[in-house]
């Protein structure tokens, strides 16, 4: 048995050792945090955070399957179609003169809306999830981006598809798998009516396997590319992949 003084001494030693270790660990943790937050930014966030997003992206892409569909809803589930983004829509648009340019195809392509309408027509009632957190349920009508790509094939198999508004005020990049997903539509109707200007007339992207930010309105150019396309919000700190 130890006597009382021994116990006190022992306790004192343990306490000193324990709290010094704890203080050192807290210091190391704080230093790591400061280190992280002082790294140079890469597209709006510290590069380790950007790296983490890209690692998460690789995992998500590896797991991604075009067979997995975003849930479909009934017409009675429709909610008000919210207008949230006006980027790239400021310039006036002449809907008759509008063309969809495809870059990177075997030959130069400039399509009219009728060319798009000539592709098989698809309807879907899906949830559009905004990166802010809200979501709406809307009905899209349009052509599959996969059908467009099949009809106007790329010169060489691309890794990415870039989409831009005619004034390049807004632009998004897609990985090929998401672009070829069967629910990725070039939509010309919303809730059974032709697209309104602020919803992206004459043609916009409806892509339920991505956040709302990728659902670009008023598409002017589609480009097949092997260079990771610039993406408006990814340049401002958001995840480039932004996939569901």
């Amino acid at each position: 048995m130890m006597n009382s003084d021994d116990v006190d001494r022992q306790l004192k030693n343990l306490t000193r050792r324990g709290f010094i270790t704890m203080a050192a660990a807290a210091g190391a943790g704080y230093a790591s945090w400061k280190f992280l937050r002082t790294r140079p930014h890469e597209s709006g966030i510290e590069w380790p955070l950007r790296n983490a997003l890209q690692t998460n992206e690789k995992l998500a892409e590896a797991y991604f399957s075009r067979q997995r569909l975003s849930p479909s809803f009934r017409p009675s589930d429709l909610t008000r179609a919210r207008i949230n983004g006006r980027l790239g829509l400021q310039a006036p648009v002449d809907l008759d003169a509008w063309r969809l340019n495809i870059e990177g195809a075997s030959s130069a392509v400039a399509l009219t809306l009728d060319d798009i309408r000539a592709l098989p027509r698809h309807e879907q009632i899906t949830e559009l999830r905004c990166i802010e957190g809200w979501s709406i349920i809307v009905k899209w009508t349009g052509a599959r981006l996969a059908d467009l790509i099949a009809k106007y094939p790329p010169r060489e198999r691309p890794q990415f598809v870039a989409l831009e508004t005619p004034d390049r005020g807004y632009y998004v990049g897609l990985d090929l798998d998401s672009a070829l997903h069967p629910q990725t539509l070039l939509a010309y109707e919303l809730n059974d009516a032709p697209l309104e200007l602020l919803h992206g007339a004459p043609l916009r992207l409806a892509i339920p396997v991505k956040y709302g930010i990728k659902n670009i309105k008023r598409i002017g150019t589609i480009r097949y590319t092997n260079i990771r396309p610039a993406d408006f919000w990814a340049e401002r700190g958001y995840d480039w992949y932004a996939g569901h």
Partner: peptide, 14 residues
């Protein structure tokens, strides 16, 4: 600070 919040959340979640 939405973008920053998401980047941190998807880093520290691991």
């Amino acid at each position: 600070r939405l973008a920053e919040g998401m980047a941190l959340h998807f880093f520290f979640m691991w």
